[in-house]
């Protein structure tokens, strides 16, 4: 179980990106994080694995307070937290399998990994994960020769290399067209249902939330303004989250 308690983030320039955010995610949930652009979704997800250091508050995961860990302990915990990025964050000039293998960095011996000497086992694991995402035959091409949807699948394969218990996905489909969005979210749904991974995923479109999430939270200007089931977001809630002028749009 993941508990976020009174989480606050103030950036050095004074921007308050998160204000006293508290919520809980049970294992096996698919939690959607919604909110306008700039509402603090990315900051929240990055605070959970401390890519961004929270200013105050606690993040308790399976009984451990992540905010209290030393950097090296945190690195060990990060292995179990996969992260999928909006911009994929692949090394464009490296080939696909090298990108996937970097998901293993938390496990391998530093000296060996610096020489690019991954074990046969890790190599097979990478190929298997690519197979699972339908990219086995692209293993040795350069990452930037893939389409956007394929690159995001590589991003997911990289996260899977960590053998994570939880996946944080920061607007994983915001850079993709609707059809590809569904294909990517289906992979996440599959991981959630079949492998039992907890998924925290920030999303922009409400119907994607309805379609995939098992629960949802909403942020507005850094504050938690909603927590509940996706179906509970009615028109009034919607206007509260997205502002009065917002229109519900649907995506295929």
């Amino acid at each position: 179980m993941l508990r976020v308690e009174h989480l606050t983030k103030v950036f050095p320039n004074g921007t308050v990106a998160l204000k006293d955010v508290t919520f809980e995610v049970a294992d096996g949930e698919f939690l959607a994080v919604i909110g306008l652009s700039g509402s603090g979704k990315s900051t929240l997800l990055r605070c959970i694995n401390r890519l961004i250091e929270p200013t105050s508050g606690k993040i308790i995961w399976d009984g451990t307070d992540l905010t209290a860990l030393s950097p090296s302990e945190m690195r060990r915990v990060r292995r179990k937290i996969g992260f999928v990025f909006q911009q994929f964050n692949l090394v464009r000039r490296s080939n696909v399998i090298t990108n996937v293998l970097t998901g293993r960095l938390g496990y391998v011996n530093t000296a060996q990994s610096l020489l690019n000497a991954f074990s046969k086992e890790d190599n097979d694991r990478a190929l298997n994960n690519l197979e699972r995402l339908g990219l086995r035959e692209k293993a040795y091409v350069r990452a930037d020769s893939l389409s956007g949807g394929q690159q995001q699948r590589v991003g997911i394969a990289r996260a899977l290399m960590q053998e994570p218990k939880i996946i944080l996905a920061d607007e994983p489909v915001a850079s993709l067209d609707p059809v590809l969005s569904h294909s990517i979210l289906k992979y996440l749904e599959q991981l959630n249902r079949e492998d039992g991974l907890t998924v925290l995923c920030s999303l922009h479109f409400l119907d994607l939330v309805h379609r995939y999430a098992t629960s949802a939270i909403a942020l507005k200007e850094g504050q938690l303004v909603f927590q509940g089931l996706p179906q509970e977001i009615d028109d009034a809630q919607f206007k509260a989250i997205y502002g009065q002028e917002a229109q519900r749009v649907s995506i295929i």
Binding site: R78, G82, N89, V91, R92, R93, T98, T110, A159, Q162
Partner: peptide, 30 residues
């Protein structure tokens, strides 16, 4: 360099040297 890949390797639990090796160096070679 594009900071994205560094963020990704950090998120995967990589340490500084590993991040440099896998996320920085490939970007700067050319």
């Amino acid at each position: 360099i594009d900071p994205g890949p560094v963020e990704a390797t950090t998120a995967a639990g990589g340490n500084l040297l590993q991040n440099i090796r896998f996320a920085v160096i490939p970007q700067i070679v050319p």
